[in-house]
Computed example of a mutant assay.
Amino acid sequence: MSNIINILAGVVTKMGKRGRKKGANGEQSRKQLLDIAAEEFAHNGYYETKISTIVKRAELTQPTFYLYFKGKEEIFQELVNLFRAELSNLIKQSRLEPGISLTSFPDNIKGKLTAIFQFFKGNPNLTQIGLFFALEAEKIKQQLSDQIEMNLIAEQQDGYFRTDIDMGIVADSIMGIIERLTVTKLLSGLKTPEMLANEIVNLLVYGLHYQ
């Protein structure tokens, strides 16, 4: 999995949460458990994933698992929270700054969308957990859509988009497009993040008709 889990594992381990072992060995063990748990949850779902399988694949013991996590629910929720926080941060960063020339702003949008799809592609297991398997998956997607709407309204006020469009509908549409294309094109390997970003911008900015 990406460096995101690695960073998180390091931060928590160094803090010595609940008296856990500090140092490189503890950090590596925690990261390994998170990596394998993400893969198990993504492939088998929450209820079919077992702690015994996770620790066996990690070549660790169940007591070692409980040094870092109270149980399956805690490690799963940590993965969900990690996905939610990282994607929320990416969407916040995707807002266009005022003053971008109208000729170059499509390329700016492509860059922002590409970053989101790259996160999904680099973290396929985490993406499936956050978008589909988490109990709060719909709430997460609604939160993200709300963030997109806030960005769009600000960009609308900056003169990038028409003022007669309901940006709530646009935001829900974009979130739906991102979710669907992630499943059908990105995680299946049919399209790259750059290709998908380009297709979305061509559709939403330039439309279906010939200019």
Rank of each mutant, 00 (worst) to 15 (best):
K92R: 13
A171C: 06
Y206E: 15
K110E: 11
T114N: 12
G16Y: 00
G159Q: 05
T61S: 15
N198A: 08
P63S: 03
D146C: 04
N25C: 06
D107N: 11
K121Y: 08
G111Q: 09
L113F: 07
R95L: 12
E138V: 08
G130Q: 03
G26Q: 02
E40H: 12
F119R: 03
Y68F: 15
S88H: 07
Y68A: 07
K191N: 11
L204T: 11
R30A: 04
K17Q: 08
M150K: 15
D166E: 11
K112C: 07
L152R: 03
D164E: 06
K110L: 10
G10P: 07
P106G: 01
Q62V: 13
N108R: 15
A154D: 11
E59D: 12
G23W: 03
L131V: 08
Y210G: 06
S101Y: 03
E27L: 09
Q118L: 14
N6S: 13
F105G: 00
K22A: 04
L203H: 01
M1E: 10
I169N: 09
I75V: 12
K56Y: 05
G16M: 07
I153E: 13
A24S: 10
V183E: 13
L187A: 02
Y46W: 09
I75C: 01
I129E: 02
N125W: 04
R180K: 14
A137L: 05
E59R: 09
G168D: 08
L96W: 00
L33N: 01
G71V: 01
K72H: 02
G207S: 01
N123Y: 06
K31W: 08
Y68V: 08
L203Q: 11
K191A: 13
A24D: 13
I7H: 08
D107L: 13
R57D: 04
L90F: 05
P106V: 04
F132T: 11
A85M: 12
P98T: 02
L33D: 03
R95N: 07
E59P: 00
R180S: 10
A9C: 08
T127S: 11
E74N: 02
I109L: 15
I36N: 05
D158N: 12
G168H: 06
R95I: 14
N44I: 06
N6T: 09
